[in-house]
Design a protein around this nucleic acid. Structure first.
Length: 192
DNA sequence: CATGGGATTGACT
DNA sequence: GTCAATCCCATGC
């Protein structure tokens, strides 16, 4: 992506990341689901302020923030907004496009829809772990790139975020309309 | 220093 | 639908 892509309001970045690619080594996928998180809102880790854990969120935009969830899974975020503002976009699901056999081995699953249809799943499929936190998403090793050639801009729906207990009402989840690779189905389609 | 709660997943009833 | 796994870290005593 161009420098400056992430130095924008997090909701815009979360919307625009849908349809982009996420690549790590031989594996890659098209982002089909994202969620926005911002320090002003209590579901965001940065809500507690600057700590050792949340420091990457407050760092420069365009870096990775990868943390461990439930002691088991790694969850991948792209840090957004200017340095000093704690915000990021959680990548929740991908459509696998490269390295699918590698993903199958790493995941221990065969079906395409079981490889990257959730934030913990895609991190495992792409071998993204917490040691990659702070890495540069323009230089790699984890790279976010533009839409693949020939792919049209997807129609994006918004709705409430998943799996949180605070600020549940904010419609900060974004995904491709009618895509079966999303982490969980949509109750009903909502506005754009 | 002890505690409890997760931005989840997979197995099971 | 329910539930356990598993560990980091923010919080409170």
């Amino acid at each position: 992506m161009e420098p400056g892509f992430y130095d924008r309001p997090t909701l815009e970045v979360a919307h625009d990341l849908v349809g982009c690619t996420l690549t790590h080594g031989p594996t890659a996928g098209v982002i089909v689901e994202t969620e926005a998180y911002h320090m002003d809102e209590p579901a965001c880790h940065a809500f507690v302020g600057l700590t050792e854990r949340t420091a990457p969120l407050f760092g420069p935009p365009g870096r990775a923030y990868v943390y461990r969830s439930y002691g088991i899974h790694a969850l991948f975020n792209a840090v957004t907004e200017a340095e000093g503002i704690g915000a990021a976009v959680l990548i929740r699901a991908l459509l696998p496009i490269e390295g699918i056999e590698v993903m199958r081995q790493r995941r221990g699953r065969e079906r395409l829809e079981d490889l990257c249809s959730g934030p913990g799943k895609l991190a495992q499929a792409l071998a993204i772990d917490v040691d990659l936190t702070g890495s540069d998403l323009l230089r790699g090793p984890v790279v976010v790139g533009p839409r693949p050639p020939g792919w049209e801009a997807p129609e994006v729906v918004t709705g409430e975020r998943i799996g949180i207990t605070k600020a549940v009402e904010l419609p900060w989840r974004f995904s491709v309309v009618g895509n079966r690779h999303v982490s969980r189905p949509w109750p009903r389609a909502q506005g754009r």
